[in-house]
Nucleic acid binder design. Structure first.
Lengths: 175, 175
DNA sequence: GTCTATAGTGCGATAGAC
DNA sequence: GTCTATCGCACTATAGAC
């Protein structure tokens, strides 16, 4: 995975073949496809960690919290996780932004994440419709926040940016 | 495009080659790729119409309306457009639901749509952050509503389902 | 590990509209 | 004549089957 990202940075994503990645990592092409279902997937392993951390954070929220509050609670540990990874996140974001296929994959990952959050909300007893909308709203807030975070310089700013976005979302939907 | 959808319905999306589609439509593979940048794109031509209709609807909203109200106004003509197309929408939705690549493409289309809506809100004078969030919220409401609409039997129910989803979104974000 | 099918591209040739 | 659409063919990369 390190090999892949280095090559993507050096030569661009499209210009890097799976054979090259495998060679640099000391693997065969076949083995690469055993680990990653396709070339894009190399850049999205981290999203599994994001999901599990987010869900853990939600589990710690008080039982009476509203669906959106539960979702927001999941972003506390996410902010901690991200605090150490701003420079990596930027490289990755730049690679993804430069390639439509990768943008597609990112969106499907976010959608998968929204599905997992929704399921967790339902498991906590939230009504289905509220769970869907709160999960989607939470992922939107995350996505918007992430975009702002990689454009500024303080690795620790993630949590504060989340709160800003949440507040703005409330303002927008209130009227 | 008709040829493509028929074949996808008959044999499945993955089992249908571009060569087959082209043949049935009386074209060559090369010409197919002149019209559609890739095989997925056949199913998403309609999204351009969705976007233009939505934006038109937004243009008709009163100047003092809140960003989300403007976005919601765009869904009036969208509901009219969809009223005639429930059966087609179902077929298309089933094909897309059965294929991860197509789900990815759908999400990127929705994201593009959100971008256009955001730009239109900014052009009307909305603040950038509010525009981003209102556009995202609007597209989420659309997506959720669409999913509900294809699961019921009244083609004209789209607008009412939009209002339900909007109300639920307000309830979720309020607390 | 090799081989195959398919998606998708580049480029020159061709055919018809004006 | 130019312009535009389609075609034909050779080509690469990927995904998966054997």
């Amino acid at each position: 995975m390190k090999a892949a990202i280095t090559l993507f940075e050096e030569q661009g994503y499209e210009q890097t073949t799976v054979a090259e990645i495998a060679e640099r990592a000391g693997l065969t092409k076949r083995t690469f496809f055993r680990y990653f279902s396709d070339k894009r997937e190399v850049l999205f392993r981290g999203s599994e960690e994001l999901e599990s951390v987010w869900l853990e954070g939600m589990a710690g929220a008080p039982p009476e919290a509203s669906p959106l509050a539960v979702v927001a609670a999941g972003l506390d540990p996410v902010a901690e996780l991200f605090a150490e990874r701003l420079s990596f996140a930027r490289i990755r974001a730049a690679i993804i932004a430069g390639n439509p296929e990768l943008k597609e994959r990112e969106l499907i990952k976010l959608q998968t994440l929204a599905g997992a959050i929704e399921a967790a909300l339902v498991a906590r007893g939230a009504p289905a419709n509220a769970a869907t909308l709160a999960a989607q709203a939470g992922v939107t807030v995350f996505h918007v926040t992430f975009g702002r975070w990689v454009q500024q310089d303080d690795p620790g700013a993630f949590r504060a940016l989340v709160d800003e976005s949440l507040e703005e979302l409330r303002a927008v939907t209130a009227a």
